[in-house]
Amino acid sequence: MLYYKNNKALISLLKNIKRQVSLSRSRQELDAVISELKCFSGSYQFNTKAYWIIFTVVLLATGLLSYWDWSQRQHFQQSTWIIIAAGGALTLLSGITAYYPHHIMSKVSHALLQRDGLLDNNLTPVTFNRKAIARHFQQRFSEFHRGNYSREIHELFKGSYQGDEYSFDYHYYHFHYVDERIVTETYTDGNGRVRTRTRREYDHYDRYGLILPFGLLRNFAVIGFSLPGAGKATYKPASNRFNKVFKVVAASEIEAAKAMKPTVVVAFEELSNVLSKVNFEVNDAADLCLSFADKDLIATPNKVKISEFEAFIEALEGEQEFEKLKAALSHVHYVMTKLDSNF
């Protein structure tokens, strides 16, 4: 029996919760999981003191014995090797045993808070084929023309936004792409001759973004990060700050000037303070892909764990806000209102 009774029951509960969280799709399902967590009769704190003591004592004892033996003989006896091996194994085992409960506690706490945050922000996971959906997006937006080796969508959520003037449905995605490159290197062989060889290296990249029907522009882009296949900039607004970060590509200079009103320019300046490497691409079907490098748009801001039970439940019962997601969506809404002001 590696664990005490309470530790064992708590680990079993956490494993069960973890499985159920991954299956939950609705608020009701998540509430049922939270109820099960609340019903646990034992302590929500692990007692791993004994394992840490064993870990420390065995580590010190093995170290001291090894040091003493080495200082006496300048080499280890066979029996010392056996003690070092046994001590090492016991140290490793006690270390893992002490660490594992805290690891699973963190993982399950995060999973619960993350799922709750997604539901609080009306985000529901979408079932999809990683490569097929990437190909589909690639046909619609230049943003997905990246990665000469592979392209995949790793996460896809559906959400809806209710603004003062506009409401729209959107998809949040996590795009992963890989570039393959051939590296040539020189080396000296066994005969002392200098030779060259080539090998393939793979660079992995991630981009994130929102896709939604925009409707107010077509073939228009504000580019803050290289956009494959985008044409040359057609228009430069008056703002130095904007021009340092973005370039504007549109069908004509007049169209770009019409869209880039001062309010829109300043809104993009503000957006670049919130998100990094931003691209705002509207395709010929008037759909928008707002892409960026930030991976924390839909990450729960809470770090509290189940072991701090009351604070944890309070965090679950409160409304979690994904501030960056909110900023990105309100930016899109703001630009919509500014572009639609044809009185």
Binding site: T263, V266, A267, E270, L271, N273, V274, E323, K324, K326, A327, S330, H331, Y334
Partner: peptide, 8 residues
Amino acid sequence: GFEYKPNI
């Protein structure tokens, strides 16, 4: 007159 306020 300029009302745009970023959220964070």
